[in-house]
């Protein structure tokens, strides 16, 4: 009994040997050391991220507009009348909270991603909730961001239960170090967050091919809802994903962050959002430790690889 309990734990030495990055070290040696607090608004405020991306030529979903004040909320239809579909997001949201996806609308009827139809009132109160800070970090007053709807590639539809699958790439000092695809499940309520029960599929930095997959910290081989073998996942245009992630490092001043990328049918990879505190579950999805990769990059002199292309080439050569 006790033995089996003990065998559920790995020894610290074994984790060290596997190069696993723990939460304390991530916070202390990477986030605190490489991410200066004053640059956090660049990733925590989606409008700021978007403007920076626009300036740097990083493709993102098209911006429709923003609603900042309660009295503007009732006018949201004026904002969205020319867009076939749209997404409402809290400007300071995190973890996919408070995101409402409207695929199409006609008059007063709005069709959500899951096919259900809602009316003006529901959208109005959703905007009200966003403005009151329901979804923002620390409950601060927020604004509602309107983006164009992403027409995400059909190739992933078998691999995801509702929701948009996205690709998280962890970037350290401009080098893409680890990647995974996050697939929504029934358990995660259509959201692509690992801790809510989404499936994470580790992707090889070299070629974007699936490595291992994880759900709620346990290895899985099939998507729990669609039943598709996760090893059959193919990400097109892999190198463009890496380029996008590496360019994000140039546009924001954070040394360690996660770039969330979605694949649009027409526009290809688009930057969804950036995260200054990317989770560690990606290591389980990849069956590989982050720490050894980060330490390899730390051992390089800062001027070793001046260009993003060189950094990507280095990462592809060293990180599977």
């Amino acid at each position: 009994m006790f033995g089996s309990l003990l065998s559920a734990f790995a020894s610290p030495a074994a984790l060290r040997n596997a190069g696993v990055l723990g939460m304390n070290r991530r916070n202390h040696d990477y986030i605190a050391a490489y991410n200066r607090r004053r640059y956090y608004p660049m990733v925590d405020d989606k409008l700021v991220t978007k403007e920076l991306a626009l300036k740097a030529g990083v493709p993102t979903a098209g911006l429709i507009g923003a609603i900042r004040f309660q009295h503007e909320a009732k006018n949201f239809m004026r904002l969205t009348q020319d867009s076939p579909g749209f997404v409402i997001k809290p400007g300071h949201g995190s973890g996919g909270r408070g995101i409402l996806v409207i695929r199409s609308h006609d008059g007063g009827e709005f069709r959500k991603a899951d096919g259900s139809v809602i009316g003006f009132q529901q959208i109005y109160s959703h905007i009200t909730n966003i403005l009151s800070g329901l979804y923002s970090l620390g409950g601060q007053v927020d604004y509602a961001l309107f983006e164009e709807c992403i027409s995400f590639s059909e190739i992933f539809s078998d691999f995801s239960f509702q929701g948009v699958p996205d690709i998280r790439i962890i970037v350290f000092r401009g080098y893409p170090v680890m990647a995974m695809m996050r697939l929504a499940t029934r358990r995660s309520d259509g959201r692509a967050n690992l801790h809510q029960g989404a499936v994470g599929v580790g992707l090889s930095i070299r070629n974007g091919k699936p490595r291992k997959a994880v759900m709620l910290d346990q290895p899985v081989t099939r998507h729990p809802d669609t039943g598709r073998m996760l090893s059959e996942l193919v990400v097109p245009d892999w190198d463009r994903h890496l380029e996008l992630a590496a360019r994000c490092a140039e546009m924001i001043k954070l040394g360690y962050f996660g770039a969330d990328i979605v694949n649009d049918r027409e526009k290809g990879p688009l930057l969804l959002e950036l995260n200054a505190r990317p989770g560690l579950g990606i290591q389980i999805a990849n069956h590989a430790g982050l720490r050894s990769r980060l330490e390899l990059i730390e051992s390089l002199p800062p001027s070793a690889m001046p260009s993003a292309a060189e950094k990507i080439a280095f990462a592809q050569a060293h990180f599977d």
Binding site: A14, V20, N24
Partner: peptide, 23 residues
């Protein structure tokens, strides 16, 4: 505050990373 070692729960969480035979 300077402790950068693994947390106790991480020893369990990252167990799959070191047990290749667990499959």
């Amino acid at each position: 505050g300077t402790y950068t070692g693994y947390r106790l729960t991480e020893l369990k969480r990252f167990k799959p990373l070191v047990s290749s035979c667990s499959d």
